[in-house]
Amino acid sequence: MYEIDPSRTDLVDEFRSNPGGPHSPELVLVVNRLRVMPVADKHVLVCTKRGKEWVLAKIPSERGAKMELFEGQVFDDYYKGVWEVFKRRWKTVTGRDVQ
């Protein structure tokens, strides 16, 4: 499986500047790697006002368990939220913060 090189800040910069894509072939590998992680404990967004507001959340490991919503992580722009999801998953997968 493709492993992300956490030193590739160029790919991070590319994503941040254009989170909606299309992405370069190598960034596609990064994005897909961040998407195929297990569902449990995955950071996601919850739309709380259609087209206007999104909240960062984390899917629990058990069915029926409460979703964790990060009340301080509320976004009025969808791609600002996606950027936060990207950073959180990058940390989960690589063990390092996005620089």
Binding site: N32, V39, I59, G64
Partner: peptide
């Protein structure tokens, strides 16, 4: 499927974005 299927994001080419209803379904089996 956004909860049950590990590869739903790469199937749909998206970042999971849930509705309030999805959150309720997760919490109310």
């Amino acid at each position: 499927w956004l909860f049950h299927q590990r590869f739903s994001e790469t199937t749909e080419t998206l970042w999971t974005t849930l509705e309030k209803a999805d959150v309720f379904l997760q919490e109310h089996n």
